[in-house]
């Protein structure tokens, strides 16, 4: 089962290596990992999507807490959190198809952020399903390049993050 772990860490050099190394050496799989500073520049938030059963998730959490730079871990409930991913897609578009592709992008509230003679680059944010749907629609034109941020997420509204505090 997929879990979204929101991990607050000290914003120090090498922390990403410590976290990712822990996953690989203990045989835990990362589906995606996104990291960046929070409102406090001394603290970064990692959003890690892992595929793990309860026992494995418990081990992952406990082992992560053993890293001195890890401050707090929350297992975000998909229902009580908002999740987004940002994807840039560069599509082959001959000039006669350009209008069609732009229209498709508009339906998805995606933005065109770069245009050349033969390509369009589209920026889309949203849930995995929405992004997948756009990707599927664009594939027939020929996707030249694609890049995604990995999922980022926050607990909804006033909901305190569910955590087994350190």
């Amino acid at each position: 089962m997929n879990h979204i772990l929101s991990v607050l860490v000290e914003n120090k050099p090498g922390v990403l290596a410590r976290v990712s190394g822990l996953f690989s050496r203990r045989g835990f799989n990362i589906d995606s990992l996104a990291v960046g500073p929070t409102e406090d520049p001394e603290i970064s938030r990692m959003t890690i999507v892992v595929d793990a059963d309860d026992l494995k998730l418990e081990q992952i959490t406990k082992q992560l807490y053993k890293l001195v730079n890890v401050l707090k871990i929350s297992d975000l409930d998909p229902k009580d959190s908002v999740q987004r991913e940002l994807v840039l897609i560069k599509v082959n578009v001959p000039s006669n198809a350009r209008a069609e592709v732009v229209e498709t992008a508009n339906i998805f509230r995606a933005n065109i952020i770069d245009v050349s003679k033969s390509t369009l680059t589209i920026e889309i944010t949203g849930t995995a399903d929405k992004i997948q749907a756009l990707e599927d629609l664009l594939r027939p034109y020929g996707i030249k390049e694609l890049v995604r941020t990995g999922k980022i997420a926050l607990a909804r509204g006033k909901l305190a993050e569910v955590t087994n505090g350190k």
Partner: peptide, 14 residues
């Protein structure tokens, strides 16, 4: 050496 010893130390510092 800090990179090399991450898996075999409780913590390390450069």
């Amino acid at each position: 050496i800090t990179g090399i010893t991450i898996p075999v130390t409780k913590h390390n510092y450069l």
